[in-house]
Amino acid sequence: MKTIINFIAVFFGLTFVLLGQTYKIPQATVQNIQGGQVSTSTFSNDGKPIIISFWATWCKPCIAELSSIAENYEDWQDETGVKLIAISIDDARNVAKVAPFVNGKSWEYEVYCDPNGDFKRAMSVNTVPHTFLVDGNGDIVWQHNSYNPGDEDELFKLVQKLAKGEKIVH
């Protein structure tokens, strides 16, 4: 029991110390949907904000989130120049279905596959959906786990702030 309490205490201590910290997108290798290897260090959007969203073809809330964003994606892009990078964590079982799936849904996102979870681990993702917001300097400034209908409106408000050059406070 003592160990468990210590463990939780250490966790909360760390969270408070580290929560305010921003960090750059970590380097890892992902696959583009043609199967070629791409380094995550090449992710950029000419100084404009990037949304990085971890998802999977079998994850219902992920699909709900990406579909809701897709409805307004053109407007979001026109207003803020934001780019959404969708990282599929589907493994060898479903990875071949990712490109047909994305096309079937008519999503206009930049899509990569992370079939063995290398980028997922580098970004400390527990479960999908997990969404990150990256500012124009490539710093991760905000993240959110899970999806509830309406979350996309909150996300867009933050993107608007970033596009205006305002700081996002944790």
């Binding site: 071949a96 279905k97 490109a99 047909p100 799936f101 994305v102 096309n103 079937g104 008519s106």
Partner: peptide, 15 residues
């Protein structure tokens, strides 16, 4: 073996 076809609005995979 996996073969797929993808165009906007339609995706087919056979494995």
């Amino acid at each position: 073996l996996s073969a797929s076809y993808a165009q906007k609005g339609l995706g087919i995979t056979v494995q």
